[in-house]
């Protein structure tokens, strides 16, 4: 484990905690896309199929359980919680997200490192994660006004991806035979999707004004 990987995991963890904090304490999910959260839940479910069969470390197992548990509880909160679900902007969250899964599945069947069920599902989760943020970004564009916690949530998610790229660069130079084209290409695409958001996030931070995306 290198410092970039740890920083990536910690910003990922922080993003989830920020979102749970918003939902649990403020009892609001305003500005949050349920579609993106459902895709994340599917991403973790299909990626961690080896949770009980492939032990890597206590750290890995605990983090996997946290990401699985948090993603499903966030979906539950938005869909089922008596108070929280009332703050969900359903009309702004119209992305046909399940259609994103088909190209990811087809791509995973044809482009993978090994043609086994577990490996294809893992590859599917990598492709799906790359584009899972799209419904959230579309929703941001529509609502434009972004509250602090939502802004921080998306910033932390983007930071997590950026740290993972640094982690791969580090591992490429420090480990032998460390070449993973599938994760790298999908990961870079995923990070680029945050580019626009990052730009406006830093602008608002620099000028000390409220974050607002252009129409």
């Amino acid at each position: 484990m290198n410092i970039f990987r740890l920083a990536g995991d910690m910003t990922h963890l922080a993003s989830v905690l920020v979102l749970l904090l918003k939902i649990h304490t403020i009892k609001s999910c305003a500005g949050i896309s349920l579609k993106t959260q459902e895709l994340f839940a599917i991403v973790f479910l299909t990626r961690y199929l080896d949770l009980f069969t492939n032990f890597i470390s206590i750290y890995n197992t605990i983090m996997k359980l946290i990401f699985l548990g948090s993603s499903f509880s966030i979906v539950w909160y938005i869909r089922r919680h008596r108070v929280v679900r009332r703050s969900y902007d359903k009309d702004q969250d119209t992305f046909r997200h399940f259609f994103l899964m088909w190209p990811c599945l087809i791509l995973a069947i044809f482009i993978n490192e090994k043609f086994t069920l577990k490996e294809v599902m893992w590859t599917f989760s990598i492709y799906l994660e790359a584009i899972a943020i799209l419904p959230q970004l579309v929703m941001l564009q529509r609502t434009r006004n972004i509250d602090n916690l939502t802004g921080q949530y998306i910033f932390l998610l983007g930071a997590y991806r950026a740290f993972y790229i640094l982690n791969w660069i580090y591992r490429y130079f420090t480990e032998e035979h460390y070449v993973h084209w599938i994760t790298w290409v999908a990961g870079v695409i995923q990070t680029l999707l945050y580019g626009d958001f990052f730009y406006y996030y830093f602008q608002s931070w620099k000028n000390n004004v409220k974050l607002e995306l252009p129409a």
């Binding site: 492939n54 890995n60 990401f67």
Partner: peptide, 10 residues
């Protein structure tokens, strides 16, 4: 890398 190495990330 081996399969385990490939999936040691989250």
């Amino acid at each position: 890398g081996t399969e385990a190495e490939a999936h040691d990330e989250l």
